[in-house]
């Protein structure tokens, strides 16, 4: 199952709710302000680092770039994908939960 999160973890509990309900083996894609959840060294990083043991976490490259975030600022283990990768994730997962 693919989960998307589009809110900063500093503003909303979406990321926390998503990670607490996503089953092991799920894909979690951070888009829009959700990409701030991919930042290493933030107060929310431990939550994501722990989640990486059970789920795959992706961050959308155009949204990272738009916010001045380069790959070396991200939590290790997070995979960066473009919109083509987003489409692929939406195909390979048989359902999608957008945490709005």
């Amino acid at each position: 199952m693919l989960h998307t999160v589009n809110k900063s973890p500093f503003e909303s509990s979406s990321l926390k709710t998503c990670l607490s309900l996503a089953r092991s083996g799920s894909d979690v894609l951070l888009i829009e302000d959700g990409v701030y959840g991919a930042l290493a060294g933030s107060t929310h990083s431990p939550l994501v680092t722990e989640a990486l043991e059970a789920v795959r976490v992706y961050a959308l490259e155009p949204d990272l770039k738009a916010r001045g975030l380069s790959g070396d600022r991200l939590i290790p283990g997070i995979e960066v994908v473009g919109y083509d990768g987003f489409v692929d994730l939406a195909c390979t997962n048989d359902k999608i939960q957008n945490w709005l």
Binding site: N6, D33, P62, D63, G82, Y83, F86
Partner: peptide, 19 residues
């Protein structure tokens, strides 16, 4: 909100991948 931009970019990518 970025939602409309994101939807547009997703759809363009999906169309160009043949979906």
């Amino acid at each position: 909100h970025q939602a409309s931009d994101s939807a547009y970019q997703f759809i363009r990518a999906a169309l160009s991948a043949g979906h």
